[in-house]
């Protein structure tokens, strides 16, 4: 009876909708408009209309912007392979053990509950050249101190904690997906002669493909938005902007350079890229899943 007349439900939906409109969609639309105008400082109003000038500058005139885009795309690929990949392997292993599964759930999920700033600080202490944990180990073993955030190593060093932090998140999601696969299916497969890896490949993975697609979509959108960890570990894209991602570069351009219109354009690029890539991945893997 309650759901026959759905009009009262609007009362419950409306507040959150209004909040979304005011705090998310309205600023987003303003941001789109801002990206087409010259805005000189954080306080300045929109001045001259410059059309697609900021977008042209991003793709054709700003080497650092292209580098931050490349870094983001590489991180995205690494995220799918390592975050989701390692989480899948761990989830398969933990789901196969009879005792201690709960322990591993907690252990792998733990980094998620630590703030990214704290993890960033922890890793910057690991990487510190003077007195850093890694160099203390290296020197204790008789080696020479290593510059962990050098030009050629910095990207990998920043990517490692970013990848590490969210493995547990996808691990828990995949493990939950695995728990939904009926034991009957495995028993039938065993009767048909399927064992070990064959069971995983032909039964488990197809049956949790929806969960994997969701994980990959989340991983890709998460990689595009990455900001907090890199900005703590490598301030201002250190060294020399080589560890800038779209999020950190957008922050630097908007709040330090106060190139507000350009920062707006970068944020629009982040959103468009996120939507396009996550939809593409979803569709590609979704179709594969249907064929399977």
């Amino acid at each position: 009876m309650l759901y026959r007349d759905r009009r009262p439900l609007i009362v419950f939906v409306l507040p959150s909708l209004l909040l979304m409109l005011v705090l998310l969609y309205y600023p987003f639309l303003e941001n789109i408009v801002n990206s087409f105008f010259e805005i000189r400082t954080l306080v300045s109003p929109r001045e001259e209309f410059i059309g697609l000038g900021n977008y042209r500058k991003f793709f054709a005139g700003d080497a650092m912007a292209i580098l931050s885009l490349q870094n983001t795309l590489v991180l995205m690929a690494l995220t799918v392979v390592f975050q989701v990949g390692i989480a899948l392997v761990l989830a398969l292993l933990v789901s196969a053990i009879r005792r201690g599964a709960q322990f591993f759930r907690v252990v792998y999920f733990f980094p998620i509950v630590i703030s990214a700033t704290a993890i960033g600080l922890m890793f910057s202490l690991f990487y510190a050249y003077d007195g850093g944990m890694l160099n203390q180990i290296v020197t204790a073993l008789g080696g020479e101190k290593v510059l962990w955030l050098s030009d050629d190593k910095a990207f990998v060093m920043v990517a490692i904690p970013v990848l590490w932090q969210y493995v547990g998140f996808y691990f828990v999601i995949i493990l939950t997906g695995l728990s939904g696969v009926s034991e009957d299916v495995y028993e039938s497969a065993e009767i048909d002669g399927a064992t070990g890896l064959k069971k995983t490949w032909y039964i488990t993975l197809p049956l949790i493909s929806d969960v994997l697609v969701t994980c990959m979509t989340l991983a890709i959108t998460g990689a595009i938005k990455v900001f907090d960890l890199p900005s703590v570990i490598a301030r201002n894209g250190a060294p020399k902007g080589l560890t800038h991602f779209l999020g950190t570069y957008m922050y630097q351009k908007t709040f330090i350079a106060q190139d507000v219109d350009y920062g707006s354009a970068i944020s629009i690029i982040i959103v468009v890229l996120g939507v396009v890539l996550s939809r593409t991945v979803g569709r590609l893997l979704g179709r594969d899943g249907e064929r399977g």
């Binding site: 910057s124 510190a128 050249y129 003077d130 510059l147 955030l149 301030r235 250190a238 060294p239």
Partner: peptide, 21 residues
Amino acid sequence: FAKDVNATTEAVTSQMFKDKK
């Protein structure tokens, strides 16, 4: 400068000076 002059932070370098490093 320190070896990590292009990657460290001002907080770290200032502390080094105060600690006589």
